[in-house]
């Protein structure tokens, strides 16, 4: 089951890469883009019999490995949900 995990830096954590990107966008004339936060995106193919089960597996691996809870938070999507 296709499961997506989005990992982002917590709002309180400075993101120098996002800052560099937004500065570049500004110099390109995209002043409408007020802020950019760079994150990570994972596509998991999970052997699961239900969306809830896939979600639970994805959350577990995100807690253990994909995200560092000190600096990051994450969101799980299963089949676009």
């Amino acid at each position: 089951m296709k499961t997506r995990v989005f990992v982002t830096l917590k709002p309180s954590v400075f993101d120098p890469q996002g800052k560099t990107i937004v500065d570049a966008l500004r110099s390109m004339g995209y002043g409408a883009v007020r802020d950019v936060r760079q994150g990570k995106y994972f596509e998991l193919d999970v052997d699961a019999s239900s969306a809830d089960e896939a979600r639970s597996v994805a959350a577990e691996v995100a807690d253990k490995l994909l995200a560092n809870p000190v600096i990051e938070s994450y969101r799980v999507e299963v089949d676009g949900k």
Partner: peptide, 11 residues
């Protein structure tokens, strides 16, 4: 140990 290490502020 406690904490985390981020990218250097000037990358």
């Amino acid at each position: 140990l406690e904490g985390a290490l981020l990218s250097n502020r000037r990358l």
